[in-house]
Design a protein around this nucleic acid. Structure first.
Lengths: 271, 271
DNA sequence: CATTTTGACTTGTCTATACATTAATTGAAG
DNA sequence: CTTCAATTAATGTATAGACAAGTCAAAATG
């Protein structure tokens, strides 16, 4: 780059902000958003604190109402603030105590840890579901479903045992799928969008079956994750995944609203 | 309700939409949003499907670009679609498989089931934390913390055993709190807002201590939930809660994006 | 043929304005 | 003092236009 005249540079620092903003692509809405998020997250504005009115923020940042309005609406959708007409916007009080767990994709997890992964299909059959299961998932008892049992192996060692039921009415493609490329969980995830899910996590003592499959002592504690998913009210699939208790744990890291919820939100992934 | 003249009703159905919209307060952006959400949720637009350009939606709904742009931006923030300049907007492929668990407030849970609840403080002392814990939570080893062990009893039976550490620097009020009115978890939740949390769920075999406290057989499977919370980078508290495995399960019901995530999102809670 | 430049297209941000909707406040009547 | 209606202040929705910034594809160049 060409050297600049010192006098010119000193002028630059004193320049109108608009051009610098354009170059740095730090947009005004991002600045407003970060300022407010920081005040809330730091506790400077505790839950219940009323934040400035739109016209006050307009004056503070010297911008139009649409700009601050969009920022505030976004914060409201993320659950950080609540807005009411005439009353203004207040910092939201954290609602319920919720845990978000990232259920690991076995293959992806293994790859990240630089370990080998493979799976084995132990069973694959189309059967009518039994009465208990039918009642649990809300399907007629005579309906036929695809049952797939899968072992997940990492470095050759059993990592998890998965028993899955797939509704063939909702996922007709599964009737001919052999699940050699990808295990049923991954296959389904990449194919069918789901709208509702239910998780149940339990601790059980290993019975003879789990002892044999997971190679753990009979009676040792195992973690069982049951996951049922629906699409617009139609049952899709149920998976019961059993992990060896000592070797495995479910971990979740998250923030109540905004920041950590969705890793790849919009374009301003700077927080 | 008053009966309507049949002729009038048939006219109603054929009427111009614009006036009805005004009366029913069904706003255009909501209609566009619902239309797109429905197409995605129903599978009509599978993951990867490119949705209409903004100007196409403008033409379809006869509105300005800002309106469709706001809708699409909102869907992008919710993670339903991804947008790229020039390339357009596409239906997002569901990212990771995540579980959301509602951690129950024991007292509230019991009340809902019409059962009695009480808690006992088994230990309450201020101690320097040990090295292992200090490293885990990122605090200096010599720091003093409040340790509280609590039994949660439902109908007189042991429901869960809770071992908690509270950072007195972050929560100075805890130094004099005796937790007789409310157990430490509830007390903290109503007092201190948190910004980050981490959960670990494991299955363990009951040792002698858990056998005695939870009145379960030694070796029987127990569910252990560890929860650590921070506020703006400052450690707040760590809780290890042990449940009898057979008697307890963690349940979560949720939707991937938008709908069920936050029960009281903005104003359009119609989906 | 390979590489660079140009152009066109699509989304991102922002302005300035208008009217609708809701709810807190004020004021008047009982 | 209470009750109900009118005022008013705040957010919600929408428009039309402008320019910026990526990014894909075709055209120009070596």
């Amino acid at each position: 780059m060409l050297g600049k005249d010192p006098a010119e540079m000193s002028l630059d620092t004193n320049q109108d902000m608009t051009e610098l903003e354009g170059r740095n692509t730090v947009h005004l809405n991002q600045r407003i958003r970060r300022d407010i998020e920081d005040k809330i997250m730091s506790g400077e504005w505790p839950p219940g604190h009323r934040l400035p009115y739109e016209h006050e923020l307009m004056a503070e940042y010297g911008c139009s109402r649409m700009t601050v309005s969009k920022v505030l609406s976004g914060l409201a959708v993320q659950g950080l603030i609540t807005r009411r007409r005439r009353a203004g916007s207040v910092v939201a009080t954290p609602k319920a105590d919720r845990a978000v767990l990232q259920i690991q994709d076995f293959a992806l997890e293994a790859k990240r840890a630089n370990k080998s992964y493979r799976h084995q299909i132990l069973r694959r059959s189309i059967e009518p579901i039994d009465a208990a299961t039918a009642a649990r998932i809300g399907m007629p008892a005579e309906a036929k479903v695809l049952c797939v049992d899968t072992m997940h192996l990492v470095e050759g060692e059993p990592e998890a045992y998965e028993e899955r039921i797939i509704n063939l009415v909702a996922v007709p493609d599964a009737r001919v799928e052999k699940f050699v490329e990808a295990p049923p969980g991954t296959w389904l995830l990449n194919r069918v969008p789901w709208t509702d899910a239910e998780h149940v996590i339990r601790a059980v003592n290993a019975d003879a079956k789990l002892h044999k499959l997971l190679q753990v002592a009979t009676g040792s504690a195992c973690l069982v994750l049951e996951r049922r998913t629906w699409q617009a009210g139609v049952f899709l699939t149920e998976a019961r995944i059993s992990y060896p208790g000592e070797r495995h744990r479910l971990i979740g890291r998250f923030s109540p609203a905004g920041s950590g919820q969705f890793p790849e939100v919009s374009s301003d992934g700077t927080s």
